[in-house]
Design a protein around this nucleic acid. Structure first.
Lengths: 205, 205
DNA sequence: ATTTTATTGTGATTTATTTCCCTATTTGAT
DNA sequence: ATCAAATAGGGAAATAAATCACAATAAAAT
């Protein structure tokens, strides 16, 4: 039976990973499920069950080996096999994401940016070049990129998505406040910053 | 009985809102639950149940009134009563968020940015000023701000959070890849960009 | 006027997720 | 050597979320 990692599980695993990173910096060798649970305000059996999915085992009275557990998470979440992506829209958000060095640690490789504004073309951001959007189909094929991070203004979102799909992009990480219409074989993830914000500011009052 | 809006419901409501915005642009007056459901790949009864929570009713064979439904969502999610926030860390991400004009439409008001780098102090971004972080406790009190958007480098995350908590900040929207230790009366939302990314690129293979 | 069709609203069912609780194990203390 | 304490592992129960199924209704078609 193949285990399906749901978004909830993945979210927790990345948080465990943050904690483990911290423990390694502090040279702590072992970590227990109640310790993790307390930091995240969740149940400790939840933590153990998540860790079980990684095929990682712990030691009673001691806990889990920090380095080993961190490696397991990285392996399970695929940090070691890099995924190549383009950023479409070299505006504020696109540029900021291009500069965000953390992505590389998690196996996300930004290969290039694209924009239709000639003034932005050829600019270099964090060793990544901005290309004219016309070059995209060709480069996507050459570099074998099928992930696009969409950071164009909302009014261009759908037409840009259509263009990406024609260029054989299969995954669209959508930062625009738009619901895109796409064929069945294209996966969209709507990044919903404001939704998260609304939830956390309204959840405790 | 008070209805608790969970993060899933809020996420869906914001997506419905995007769709409704689009319909208004196109001058379409009515929308049905199967139409919304199809765009989002979810069940239509789910949509109806969400809309029920807004105390909004539809008409058989016709659907829901677009403008009215959009207003209901805005009211329920509190778009009309602005929430004031500070951005802590005027780096790439902090600056990009400050420039992100969409936030205002959703009731999130960025009042100012803070940084400890003297070269960044007094810079103006999108009509918002960068202040020395020392000024924060005072300004938080004066402007009645209790929400902080944390975009500092990971190595400063915990100490900055401690400082924010001392300054009476109650909500921390954490963009750093760190699990923060905070007292019980402080709410943290870990923005997990990479977790979302990992989920959507791995969910269909 | 009657039938067909599309849709809402909602109870029942199913599925997914989390929490509870107990047993076995390991370590450290007595 | 024995006991106490902390923890992993995992089945059972509880809770939450999504889907299914269908009656009621309203518009459009015949």
């Amino acid at each position: 039976m193949k285990i399906q990692l749901t978004d909830k599980i993945i979210k927790r695993l990345t948080l465990y990973h943050c904690i483990l990173f911290d423990y390694i910096e502090k040279n702590i060798e072992f970590i227990s499920s109640p310790q993790i649970a307390k930091l995240l305000n969740i149940d400790d059996s939840q933590v153990r069950k998540d860790i079980k999915l990684l095929n990682n085992t712990g030691k009673c009275k001691v806990g889990y080996e920090v380095k080993c557990l961190k490696k397991s998470i990285e392996k399970t979440l695929g940090f070691e096999k890099p995924k190549n992506a383009f950023i479409i829209g070299a505006g504020n958000l696109g540029m900021a994401l291009a500069k965000y060095t953390n992505f590389q640690d998690y196996g996300l490789n930004i290969m290039a940016l694209f924009d239709n504004d000639k003034r932005k073309v050829d600019v270099i951001v964090n060793f990544k070049k901005v290309f004219d959007v016309e070059k995209l189909p060709d480069l996507a094929k050459k570099l074998n990129v099928e992930i696009a991070i969409l950071t164009v203004p909302r009014s261009y979102a759908q037409e840009t998505a259509d263009f990406l799909i024609k260029s054989n992009i299969k995954y669209i990480w959508n930062f625009t406040p738009t619901v895109l219409k796409v064929p069945n074989d294209v996966i969209v993830w709507n990044e919903n910053l404001i939704g998260n914000f609304l939830h956390f500011t309204s959840s405790h009052n």
